[in-house]
């Protein structure tokens, strides 16, 4: 069952996909992770942070 589910998400039985820019070679999987990190970083900067209960003075 686990094999069926995992196989339907990502097929690992073929060579990986790579992106090429001149001498730069980057796997598609790593590119996706880097883009996801950049997206989460931007969200971390722009999304408001709920700061909790403020103290009374």
């Amino acid at each position: 069952m686990i094999d069926v589910v995992s196989a339907s998400i990502v097929n690992l039985t073929h060579p990986g996909h790579y992106l090429h820019w001149g001498f730069i070679q980057l796997s598609l999987a790593n590119s996706i992770v880097i883009l996801a990190m950049l997206a989460v970083f931007v969200l971390a900067l722009v999304l408001p942070f709920r700061s909790g209960r403020r103290s009374r003075r």
Binding site: L43, A44, L45, L47, F49, R50, S51, G52, S55
Partner: peptide
């Protein structure tokens, strides 16, 4: 018990 207000940032959550 308390932190300065600028600690309220997602960067520290990470």
């Amino acid at each position: 018990d308390r932190q300065p207000s600028y600690v309220a940032s997602w960067i520290y959550v990470f």
